[in-house]
Design a protein around this nucleic acid. Structure first.
Lengths: 263, 263
DNA sequence: TTCCGCACATAACAAAGGCTAAGTTGTCCA
DNA sequence: TGGACAACTTAGCCTTTGTTATGTGCGGAA
């Protein structure tokens, strides 16, 4: 099935890259996809150490970046619909972590050969791709920060706040909450805590009137309290529309203010 | 002072990028530096939220990526001599974290304008720059994993193991250990634990005959025990020489083995 | 030399969170 | 309809870690 007649094309590429790309560029990127695949349940898509010759765009659903070490699994990140999941496989070649799908997922495959071609022909797109991987890194840093500064309830709240924010950017979820294929085990693996303790904290969050987690449905009871409890400050997601890649590079607008001169 | 007569030029760019670049390319990158600066003590180089028009190469010393939130400081990463520290400022423009120098440091400044030019003229270098930021992201992921899977003593051991490994890649440090400007407060901020507990764990590590920390000198007492205690598996640092960017992209060698076909 | 300040060290208590072991609920399928 | 199974829930105990308080040792400045 081509991307053009996929039922979810509407949401595709409306996420992190939407502000920085012209319509023509969006068409170009969509045209890179040589095949789409639908997957369901929890399964491994790519293994740590694999070499690959294609990258993956997440068209619909949720994907997890996991690392298995000494029998234990960690979830070190996730991607939502519209994300270019696997761009770093293009430059790294060998993956340093696993990619898993969860729930009902549609992925699109992009051969590295075609990526290479388009990046030479369209330097602006190349920078946007780079930006996309840098955004993942910024999210990683925020996760490191939260793991250092927040106790378990705050970490859970931060996860919910971030997920909610990212899902609303692609018009999934609304002001009352969102759906997710994650269960309490996943939450524990994402926040570095035991399942039992996840459950305790979920009860605390519910009783505090902040969020409610119930069988794959997250209901935000009080957005302000959630933000405060999570100390959630979304600027690291660069979601305000001014991704600035295109603008600053193409036009050199006055919005870039140097703080130290290098001359 | 130009980079050419800087006393530490020998180590410059011998780190993460050394295997992937031709001598000509190394010269090109060194030529990008318009000014070097020496700094000492602990000071802020760039602030979260700053916009900048240059990137930074760390020629000598140690730099920290920090995030201050509600009066508390987190160290979410660090760079060692030879690292291209600040490449992501080129594409992100607005920084999501602070950059601090610590100890005796020499930095080189590269204007974004020159980066832009060279990346268009030398696509291979552009991919190497991209790779460098992806390597930072891989390190972030490992930090997330270790914060989820290891208890405090293991996290500390992992930090020492990684630092030791990265410093030896640039010929700082030797088989017995290394020097560092970090103190116990920094260690706590890097591993997400209180200073008191850092001290407890350092005693445990010393008494277990694993590593000894003493006023800026880390002595590795038993490399095997250290590796085991930290569950340190350095493949995420892509340090084996096969960074594969140049190889796979330039020659399409047989070393890339696709695991899933996208056609 | 003496004093001051910073980094390091230790102890005692409190809080957070892990672990084991039971339940309970809901859903799917024979 | 009932049994199997997975996800969720709770309790109790114990380890890990944070907090507060206080002490020690070393190097630099007057």
């Amino acid at each position: 099935m081509s991307i053009d007649n996929h039922p979810n094309t509407g949401r595709f590429l409306q996420g992190r890259l939407r502000h920085a790309m012209a319509d023509r560029e969006k068409d170009l990127v969509e045209g890179l996809i040589v095949r789409t695949e639908e997957l369901r349940g929890e399964q491994l898509l790519l293994k740590r150490g694999d070499f690959c010759e294609f990258s993956t765009i997440l068209i619909e659903g949720l994907m997890l970046r996991t690392i298995h070490e000494n029998g234990q699994r960690s979830i070190v990140g996730y991607q939502v619909a519209g994300d270019f999941v696997d761009l770093h496989a293009f430059a790294l070649k060998r993956l340093d972590h696993d990619l898993m799908v969860i729930g009902n997922v549609t992925v699109g495959y992009v051969p590295h050969e075609r990526l290479r071609e388009i990046m030479e022909a369209e330097p602006h797109l190349a920078r946007i791709f780079w930006f996309s991987t840098l955004l993942d890194a910024a999210i990683h840093r925020e996760w490191i920060m939260k793991s250092q500064q927040l106790r378990s309830m705050g970490r859970l709240a931060h996860l919910f706040a971030e997920l909610w924010y990212r899902l609303r950017m692609v018009e999934l979820g609304n002001s009352s909450g969102f759906q997710t294929p994650l269960n309490q085990i996943h939450l524990g693996e994402m926040c570095g805590m035991s399942t039992v303790h996840v459950n305790r904290c979920l009860r605390d969050l519910r009783e505090a009137g902040i969020v409610e987690f119930r069988r794959g449905r997250i209901t935000v009871l009080d957005a302000e309290k959630l933000k405060e409890c999570a100390r959630f400050e979304p600027s690291y997601l660069y979601g305000e529309g001014g991704l600035s890649v295109g603008h600053a590079l193409d036009k050199g607008t006055g919005e870039t203010v140097p703080v130290r001169r290098a001359g």
